[in-house]
Design a protein around this nucleic acid. Structure first.
Length: 570
RNA sequence: GGGCGCGUGGCCUAGCCUGGAUAAGGCGGCAGCCUCCUAAGCUGUAAACCGGGGGUUCAAAUCCCUUCGCGCCCGCCA
């Protein structure tokens, strides 16, 4: 709805500018929402410098030239100083309500678009996911949900490192340490992986055994492969469980080894060699990328002839490029350089490069996290503590509910809090994990938004019980929705689609988190100031109930896009 | 040493790309609001010269230069 409004403002304003005898680009209209107007134009500033005239006079002049067609989404227009302020019309308000009621869970969705292949998480299967990994999962999953809502056909993949050095260490660890069957499989893997690393550090003479294992896999040795697979499967089983609890789902788990087996790794190395930008450096095959701005060469083959992660990743990206129109990767800040080199190398052989979203690190007060050193807070641990804290909150507030219901709510609230807490911060900000904040269900969090959803549901439920509501299909007079907080709420709902569109274009999921909070703010203020069930007139009550239903829908759609549960009661 | 990112009230963040109207929100502080649809809510209030310095511009948190601080990277690891 908002996008149509904006288009109308653009068209009307461009006409006025033309009628006034000026010329300007649409982008110079500088249309932005502000606290003064639904859309404000700063075109007068631009024209002022071109025409050498006072921007105030220009703004007033342009407003006098404006012609607003009947039934337009544009209501009042005012020149305030150099600004031209546009308000939406009643038509806009009432159509928004009608559109939400009609489209329901589809409200805010865009038209079908091309296929996108999005890769996220892809953590090494050498232990459980920790709080650093889940920033990747949550950014990636939220982005995939945003893109789907925007209309893209999104396939989500997890790239499984099933043959790197770390996995060789895990495999080696299996033969030297006892695997604890009673623990969650990924944690048990981490346990022996940490021991193995300590052992290898103390006795570096064993490192040759790791190299031997890696060569075995590279050459397709059945027994070694089998051992690697067992280790990877165990770790992955636990990781998948953790992802599922976060409401994160991957369509495919793609193994690195498959590209070696298929010959794709060998083929792409040959293709890179054919560009003439490779050379041997102490026996290793390296790619020269100075013309792409990289001082260091990129090693794509060890001197013993085996491939590296990067080599297999090149083959993986070649394959991905053939599967979709766009390829998006979510990587941690430690991948900045390597992903740049990867892109450059792909570009040099004419393969479509991925769009890379980089997020900065989550560290602990005592330093950065490391699975190898055993210094990390596992995601499972965080989830358990958060849902326990949420359960205590529910217990305090709702003595009327069964334990099962309270547990269900606590799970939604706790996991929602985790997801929201991570997604609300823009990815380029590095953060320090803090237990106190993680366990604090503050207003700027998922519980606040979930609570506004529960309140909306509760009003509708009560109205149904009291037979005061004819249900979502009832005829209403939207013209009765005139309270300031009603209008503010409707305007907030109307921009949902444009927020989705913006997040999808910029690949910035945190903007949606901020919108969710603002939407909840708008609903809570409406809730506070406008009686619904207690409304005097039946027609007004019906219109307000319909509005509550709309708010319920848009809040639920927003939460769904954030991958956060929308409890009907809490 | 080089590259990239970040630096906004006591604390955590939004805004920066695409410069413009009082720098926005939360936590914490202070003062209020439950005979009324769930107080995980609402209202009010104090608190920031947007790390420092310089520049561009009619206009800079936003762009440019410089400097300081923090994070990440600069492996035949991933």
């Amino acid at each position: 709805m908002f996008l149509e409004f904006k288009a109308q403002v653009e068209s009307v304003l461009m006409d006025a500018i033309q009628n006034a005898g000026f010329e300007i680009e649409v982008s110079d209209l500088d249309l932005e929402p502000s606290s003064y107007a639904d859309l404000a134009s700063r075109a007068a500033f631009k024209l002022a410098s071109l025409q050498k005239q006072n921007p105030k006079d220009l703004a007033a002049h342009l407003v006098s030239e404006l012609k607003i067609p009947k039934g337009s989404y544009i209501g009042a227009v005012k020149a305030v100083g150099p600004y031209i302020n546009f308000e939406v019309s009643r038509t806009y308000i009432e159509k928004t309500v009608a559109e939400v009621r009609e489209k329901q869970e589809k409200f805010g969705s865009g038209a079908p678009k091309e296929k996108i292949l999005l890769e996220h998480t892809s953590a090494n299967p050498n232990g459980p996911l920790h709080v650093g990994h889940i920033r990747n999962s949550i950014i990636g999953d939220t982005l995939s949900r945003i893109l789907r809502r925007a209309g893209y056909d999104v396939e989500v993949q997890y790239y499984v490192n099933d043959m790197g050095r770390q996995i060789a260490v895990v495999s080696w660890a299996f033969e030297h340490f006892k695997f604890n069957q009673s623990r969650k499989s990924d944690s048990a893997i981490a346990e022996i992986y940490i021991k193995a690393n300590a052992e290898l550090e103390a006795h570096p003479e064993h490192l040759a055994e790791i190299d031997a294992l890696m060569e075995g896999v590279e050459q397709g040795d059945a027994a070694t492969l089998e051992n690697f697979n067992t280790a990877v499967a165990l770790a992955l089983e636990g990781i998948k469980e953790t992802l599922l609890r976060m409401n994160v789902v991957h369509d495919k788990f793609v193994k690195e080894s498959s590209f070696l087996m298929s010959g794709a790794v060998h083929a792409i190395v040959e293709r890179i060699k054919a560009t003439g930008r490779t050379e041997f450096d102490n026996g290793a095959l390296v790619v020269e990328l100075a013309d792409y701005g990289f001082e260091k060469t990129l090693v794509i083959q060890r001197s013993n002839g085996t491939s590296l992660y990067t080599t297999r990743d090149l083959a993986y990206h070649e394959w991905k490029a053939g599967q979709a129109n766009r390829v998006i990767d979510i990587f941690g800040a430690d991948h900045k350089l390597i992903s740049g080199q990867l892109r450059a190398t792909l570009n040099s052989i004419g393969i479509q490069e991925p769009e890379v979203v980089i997020f900065e690190f989550v560290s602990l007060p005592e330093g950065s996290m490391s699975t190898r050193r055993g210094q990390f807070i596992s995601a499972d641990d965080l989830f358990d503590k958060v849902t326990t804290a949420a359960f205590e909150e529910v217990e305090k507030r709702r003595t009327d509910l069964s334990k099962a219901t309270k547990l269900e709510i606590a799970e939604m609230v706790g996991m929602g809090a985790v997801r929201y807490d991570i997604v609300r911060v823009s990815p380029e900000k590095s953060t320090v994990f803090n237990w106190k904040e993680a366990l604090d269900f503050e207003k700027q969090g998922a519980p606040y938004i979930q609570y506004s959803h529960a309140r909306a549901c509760s009003i509708l439920e009560k109205a149904k019980e009291e037979k005061a509501w004819e249900g979502p299909e009832s005829e209403i007079e939207a013209s009765l929705l005139i309270e300031p907080s009603e209008i503010a709420l409707i305007k907030k709902m109307a921009v949902f689609e444009s927020v989705i569109e913006h997040c999808a274009r910029e690949l910035k999921p945190h903007t949606l988190a901020i919108y969710a909070r603002e939407l909840a703010d708008a609903f809570n203020q409406f809730y506070r100031f406008v009686p619904v069930i207690a409304a005097e007139e039946a027609k007004v009550r019906a219109a307000r109930l319909a509005l509550v239903d709309c708010a319920r829908i848009v809040i639920a759609n927003t939460l769904e896009t954030l991958g956060i549960g929308a409890p009907k009661s809490m």
